[in-house]
Every structure is written in structure tokens, then in C-alpha cells.
Design a protein around this nucleic acid. Structure first.
Length: 489
DNA sequence: TTTTGAGTTGTTCGA
DNA sequence: GTCGAACAACTCAAA
């Protein structure tokens, strides 16, 4: 075939609004899509277990969608630079397109690859596809990056609507079958045990699944989003996050579809705005990480570098297994394990519990989430954990320690969510559902609950843990000024 | 340059 | 039960 054009797909597993694919198709040359399993490049940041399950199914869907348009998809394992160069050599490709990613390791890799391709006379072009606006486009009046969300979001909105989505490319002109790894050989899905057994009940990875999810959301639950999003038992949230992470849908598509639903009255202005604001947080977290790349694993606020984190493997294990004895926290952790996601409200409570009640380093929680969430996303995950721990940009104040009992009572008032994921407590009356240790023996017996046998007793006492956390945070509070004066003296 | 207003998501205590 | 205040300062962003 004639010299083809390579579209290197990474986390943009979609045909529509895909600038790299669109540009490759527009070149007039035959288009070949390439996906490289990048474990070798990503190192510490390699795709986590639950995300691999998603990736498998997303690639399968993408392969079928491309095939229907006569576009081939090549799967390769290895380092992206050598795979790309070898393929370009083999095919005689003169042009490579991809959509930008913003994790520090990804930027480093892509920059290197771009120069290696260019050296060889191959045109390499990167495109904007993963954000509403590029990280360097949203600027303060002084020209710098933001570190507070609200002014960031105001500035982004003031720039007007992001570019409208591109259509999917037309059918390609005869790309041939080219040797590819077999997706099944990558063994991205778990066996023995198959902890993802229930995932298909909850998810349909792929561009079509993403579009259906958005349409279903905007056509119904979106209108109750502003209030309903805090109640994990309500189907009030979009659940688009894993689709967004893998780029099966773009934030621009979401923006424009939401604006359209607001314009035709399907979705109220309040509801639509509050939903887009959350999409804005995704851009903000990328913006933060792009401008502060070291915060992947370093505290955004350096005075936390001396924070007295506890080492408590038993407590950490109990947290991961949903056996802390706090039913609302445990419900969230078990929802995570069974479905690959946790409702946002419960994420905050469960994360706060790890960091503040157990005093365990946010990085341990971040790593666990990264491995178990189907929507694991470095920027969002790090941003969220640092916010919770209080060491982040624009972080939660140190004295905000979520009460795992009252949060349950407030946001799961009927107990439907907690009973679903902690069924051994299902027969407990509402009054004791979130604090079974306070239930009279008779009530426990009637509900079939024996503490420390059928369900754990709380691993820490709330009031004592809260005080311990406040004391620990006290140690980093005044640090900064003291250090400065010490340094000056 | 200095000043001013503001900042995702909460809890507890005491009147 | 309900309500307001305290929790603590700090830093950002813009005027």
C-alpha cells in the first residue's frame, strides 16, 4: 500500500472527536492505528488491575469499530519508542499523529519520541483531545497557572465554549491486515480468582457504551444532579469517569451535549452547570499536575513532609477489605472491590478515614485506589487524595474530619446503599445501621449480628481517632513560619 | 505595590 | 431539635 499514516492511540479509544485519528484520515494516506501496552514506559504508573480489565474490553470495542470502517488496529507490547520506530520503518510511514497526555512520565516519553521520529524524517504531530482547554491555555491575569479551583473555573468559562467535537473519520482507503499481538494474549483480565466477575453487570466499556451512558444521564438523572449527586443510593451521577479516563468520550463532547440539553430544557441550568463544574475538576487536576509534576508523589504543601504518618499494616488491610467496623466506610470499600468504582461522596469519607482516623499516608490510599478503580486516573487520584489529606492545592482544612457515622446517616438516610454492600447488617434498624456497636444486645441478636464475628467491631474509636488526627495536624500547622525564621536566623 | 475578598464537599459545642 | 460560632491561619487572584 501507499505510505500510510499512523495514528498512535493511547487514552483516546474513540473514533469521534479524535483529532489525531481525524488528522491521519485527512492526510489522504491509508490509516493504521497503533496501541502500545506501555507497562515498560509507565513503570510505577503502569495501568492498575481494574483498569486493565477495562482496557481489554475497550480495545476489543475499538477494534470492532475501526474494522467496520476498514481501519486496522495493531496491538504491540513494549517500549513505545522502539515499537513506533520499527512500525514506521516497516510500513514506510512518513507521518504519525497522537493526542496529548499530561502525566509527567507520559510527557517525558512523548517528547523523546517526537524528536526521534523527527530525526528520521517522520512528521510527528500531537493534538489536543483530552481536556476542555490545554493546561497552559488557562492562565491567571498575571500569566501563571492557577492553584485554586474557583478562579480557574471562572477563567476557563470566560474563554467560552471549548472547540466543538469533530466527526468520526470517514472509512479509510484500504489499510491492510498487519501483524498484531492478540488481545487475549495480553491477559489483561483476571483469572483465578476472577475478581472482575461482576464488572460486566455494571459497565459497558467502549465508545458506544460511553455515548449511551451520557445520553441516558442527560435524558434523566442529570436534572437531579446538583442535589442527588451526594446520595450514593440514588442513580443521580453520570458514571462517565472510566469512559473519560480511557478517552471513549471527550470532555468537549460532554460539554457540548450538556449545553444542548440545557438549551432545549431537558436539563436545568443549575443541574447542567453543576455537572460541568465536576468535569472542570478533571481539567483542574490535570492543570495542577502539569504545572507541579513532582506532586505525583510529593506533598503539594511541603510542610507536610514531616507529617507523623502511622505505619499500621493491619489497619490498612482492614480498610482495603472493607472491615473497619464503620459500615459506611466498609460499604464504599466493598463497592470498590466488587464494581471497580466508589461513589464520590463515599470516596471522600473512606479516604478521610484512612488519612485522618488511621493516620495512614495518603500515598498508600492513592496506590490502592489506582489499582482497584476502573476510573483510576493519576491526576484526579493524586488531586483527590492530597485534597483529602490537607496537603494539596486548595485542600480541605485540617479540621475537616468526616464523621463516618453521621455522613452515613445524612447521605444514606434509608440505608439502602450501606445494606446493599454490607448485607450482614441488613436487618439492623436504621438507628444502629451506621454504629452497630451502640445497638443493644437484643437488637443485635434479632438482626443476626455478632460483633467481631459476623461483622467487625470498630478498629478505632471515632472520638479518640479524631483527637489524634487533630494533634498530628497540629505538628505541621505552624511549621512553615518557624522554619522560615529559623532559616533567617 | 498593597490591599482585599475569598476559598468543593464538615464537625462539634453550647446556647 | 435547631442554630450560630469556632475551628486557624494562609495564600491565592485580582483590583
Amino acid at each position: 500500500m501507499a505510505s500510510p499514516c499512523i495514528a498512535w492511540l493511547r487514552r483516546d479509544l474513540r473514533l469521534s472527536d479524535n483529532p489525531a485519528l481525524f488528522a491521519a484520515a485527512a492526510s489522504g494516506a491509508p490509516v493504521v492505528c497503533l496501541f502500545v501496552l506501555d507497562d515498560d514506559d509507565a513503570g510505577e504508573n503502569a495501568t492498575g488491575g481494574a483498569s486493565r480489565w477495562w482496557l481489554h474490553h475497550s480495545l476489543a470495542a475499538l477494534h470492532a469499530d475501526l474494522k467496520a470502517r476498514g481501519i486496522g488496529l495493531i496491538l504491540k507490547k513494549g517500549r513505545a519508542d522502539s515499537v513506533l520506530l520499527a512500525l514506521a520503518d516497516k510500513l514506510g510511514a512518513k507521518e504519525v499523529h497522537w493526542n496529548r497526555l499530561y502525566e509527567p512520565w507520559s510527557i517525558a516519553r512523548d517528547t523523546k519520541i517526537k524528536s526521534r521520529l523527527t530525526e528520521r524524517g517522520i512528521a510527528a504531530e500531537s493534538h489536543a483531545a483530552d481536556m476542555l482547554r490545554e493546561p497552559w491555555q488557562v492562565k491567571t491575569k498575571a500569566g501563571g497557572p492557577f492553584s485554586v479551583f474557583t478562579p480557574f473555573w471562572r477563567a476557563l468559562q470566560a474563554m467560552g465554549a471549548p472547540p466543538p467535537p469533530l466527526p468520526a473519520p470517514a472509512a479509510a482507503n484500504g489499510s491492510t491486515e498487519i501483524e498484531s499481538d492478540s488481545l487475549d494474549d495480553w491477559a489483561l483480565t483476571p483469572h483465578a480468582p476472577d475478581w472482575a466477575a461482576e464488572f460486566p453487570d455494571h459497565w459497558t466499556p467502549g465508545e458506544a457504551g460511553a455515548a449511551a451512558r451520557l445520553e441516558g444521564f442527560l435524558g434523566g438523572p442529570a436534572n437531579g444532579y446538583a442535589k442527588g449527586r451526594d446520595f450514593p443510593a440514588q442513580p443521580a451521577v453520570s458514571r462517565l469517569s472510566p469512559h473519560l479516563h480511557f478517552g471513549e468520550i471527550s470532555p468537549r463532547q460532554i460539554w457540548h451535549a450538556t449545553e444542548m440539553a440545557m438549551a432545549d430544557g431537558t436539563v436545568s441550568d443549575t443541574a447542567g452547570r453543576s455537572f460541568l463544574r465536576e468535569v472542570g475538576w478533571r481539567d483542574f487536576n490535570r492543570h495542577l499536575l502539569y504545572h507541579n509534576p513532582h506532586t505525583v508523589d510529593a506533598n503539594f504543601r511541603p510542610q507536610f513532609d514531616t507529617f507523623p504518618w502511622a505505619v499500621d499494616d493491619a489497619a490498612f488491610r482492614a480498610w482495603t477489605q472493607g472491615r473497619t467496623g464503620y459500615p459506611f466506610v466498609d460499604a464504599g470499600m466493598r463497592e470498590l472491590w466488587r464494581t471497580g468504582i466508589m461513589h464520590n461522596r463515599v470516596r471522600m469519607v473512606a479516604a478521610s478515614f484512612l488519612v485522618k482516623h488511621l493516620l495512614i499516608d495518603w500515598r498508600k490510599g492513592e496506590a490502592w485506589f489506582r489499582d482497584t478503580l476502573v476510573d483510576a486516573d493519576l491526576a484526579n487520584n493524586v488531586g483527590g487524595w492530597q485534597w483529602t489529606a490537607g496537603c494539596g492545592a486548595d485542600a480541605a482544612p485540617y479540621f475537616r474530619i468526616f464523621n463516618p457515622i453521621t455522613q452515613g446517616e445524612k447521605f444514606d438516610p434509608t440505608g439502602a446503599y450501606t445494606r446493599r454492600w454490607v448485607p450482614e447488617l441488613a436487618a439492623l434498624p436504621d438507628k444502629y445501621l451506621f454504629k452497630p456497636w451502640e445497638a443493644p444486645p437484643l437488637v443485635l441478636r434479632q438482626a443476626g449480628v455478632t460483633l467481631d464475628e459476623t461483622y467487625p467491631a470498630p478498629i478505632v474509636d471515632h472520638a479518640a481517632a479524631r483527637q489524634r488526627a487533630l494533634d498530628a495536624y497540629e505538628t505541621v500547622k505552624q511549621k512553615q513560619p518557624a522554619e522560615i525564621s529559623k532559616g533567617a536566623a
